[in-house]
């Protein structure tokens, strides 16, 4: 009972996203780095640990380490979404099976954070499911470790049609800091969410896109 009173006292914390743009608190300067007018491209390029900087910044390779900030790059306040190839034919209620294939624990912690009252993803009709049999979306995070990828493919096969694969985090997309290749080698990815780790708002954005919203 006391819990409930406390809840009422605390008021509403939930983000206004997606009806409104994310607030500053939700996404402060943690986005993709963008070059200043007088940015030192050459130095930034040679110092970037993943080779994300060429003429522009590759969101999928960037590990958001902040090193290029030493060379007049500024962190943006936007949520990036690289690419959407396929969406689900229905959008009201989607069930997500989370598959961690070797993350550093930050990516899956951010996925877990979708549950908290600040994001409350149930209000948008998104739910986690403990079994791939009920899942419409396979959310893959982490650097593909061979032993786990086997389990991932089994989970994918067990999912009913229609299904989409969402990959989140630079590890899954490009191998990030750990390697040269991401999950693409093993499975076709439909929605790509960059970040290291992608903040919950970015995950929300990606999952909504996967359901065609």
């Amino acid at each position: 009972m006391r819990w409930i009173f406390r809840g009422i006292k605390k008021g509403i914390l939930t983000t206004k996203y997606p009806e409104e743009k994310p607030a500053y608190d939700e996404v402060p300067e943690i986005g993709l780095p963008v070059p200043d007018k007088c940015a030192d491209f050459a130095s930034a390029e040679s110092n970037c640990p993943t080779g994300a900087i060429t003429n522009a910044v590759d969101a999928e390779k960037c590990i958001f380490c902040g090193r290029c900030e030493d060379f007049r790059f500024k962190r943006s306040r936007t949520v990036e979404l690289a690419e959407v190839r396929k969406t689900l034919p229905f959008s009201k209620s989607i069930h997500v099976f989370v598959a961690d294939v070797g993350s550093c624990n930050a990516c899956n912690r951010e996925v877990e954070m979708l549950n908290n009252p600040f994001y409350d993803f149930h209000r948008l009709g998104i739910f986690f499911t403990p079994t791939p049999r009920h899942a419409d979306v396979l959310l893959v995070v982490g650097y593909p470790v061979e032993k786990t990828v086997k389990a991932l493919l089994e989970a994918y096969d067990a999912m009913p049609e229609p299904k989409v694969v969402v990959a989140a985090g630079s590890c899954a997309l490009s191998g990030g800091i750990f390697g040269e290749e991401g999950i693409d080698r093993y499975i076709d990815v439909d929605v790509r969410i960059p970040g290291c780790p992608p903040p919950p708002i970015a995950l929300l954005h990606g999952l909504l896109k996967a359901s065609g919203r």
């Binding site: 608190d25 939700e26 402060p28 300067e29 943690i30 590990i63 958001f64 380490c65 902040g66 090193r67 900030e69 962190r75 930050a106 912690r109 951010e110 954070m113 908290n116 600040f118 290291c196 780790p197 903040p199």
Partner: peptide
Amino acid sequence: EEILRLNAKLFHHRYAFG
């Protein structure tokens, strides 16, 4: 989440990477 947001504002990263 409150602490992670505090981290994000202070260190430009929710888990203080970098």
